[in-house]
Amino acid sequence: MENLIEVRDLHKSFGSLHAVNGVSLNIRRGEVLGFLGPNGAGKSTTMKMITGFIGPSSGSVSVCGHDVGTAPLAAKEKIGYLPEGAPAYGEMTPAQFLDFIADIRGLSGAGKTARIREVVEKINLGGVINQSIETLSKGFKRRVGLAQAILHDPEVLILDEPTDGLDPNQKHEVRALIREMAPNKAIIISTHILEEVDAVCTRAAIIARGQLLFLGTPAELQARSARHNAVTMNVPASDAAAVTERLGGLPDILRIEPGETLGARQRLTALSRTGNPIFDVVHGALRAGDWAFSELFVEPGHLDEVFRTITTVARAPGEVTHS
């Protein structure tokens, strides 16, 4: 499949601050890339360079084959962009605002009217279509920004924190919308919410201090968790010590971590030494010891733990993990 977005060795400095330091990425049609990173990591700056708002200090970006630096208008026609904070002209109503965007995007006549109606319906803006944008709630403002970004059905969609400020139902709707659009587009979303990566992304990129520290699938990201494939069980508190000793002695198991105490019962988590599945081993051992376990499940791995590990550990410049 073709690369719709190609980012090559992007650098950006603001004075002495090296905000983006050698980011390279390719995104194909059908991919949704989740951009993760602490605040100030360079996520927004990278997105601003991909969309042509600011020029890189060095490196280049091409969108659908158009170089953003040398053919900015051709590239911008292919991109739908939701900037951070979903800015919009407050004195306009969503109807006027979308009409303006449609004009700029070169839509006209019946096609324009139909497309605006379709997007308004898809994003559920019907109820506020004639209220001025500055009077709308944060959730609606965000949706106006989304509507604006997808109005021309772009091949490339760049969304800077699309679900920020939305309630859980709205988040769910927006994620469903992104998934629905994903097969025909290349999409980049930035987010603080790790579950979002699992929910909508086909790939995840972690960026910190301007550098790309991880690029891979969400599953690969989870696999880097110490708790990946760990098995949690619920046993009688009186048996906890015996279970810990028995399981802790098995070669596949790294160690046993005690979890919550629930009345007379105790949760224990067995960590895999190699990261490989240990469910059968644990299950077999519990059966053999005839312990009355009431829960037994495999931990998928904790994304926030991986995120913390990757973004806080100091790394040599240029060291990128490609899984």
Partner: peptide, 14 residues
């Protein structure tokens, strides 16, 4: 101030 400059400058407008 409102951030619409970023919106405007990423639309296909010179």
């Amino acid at each position: 101030k409102s951030g619409t400059l970023e919106l405007l400058m990423t639309l296909p407008v010179s």
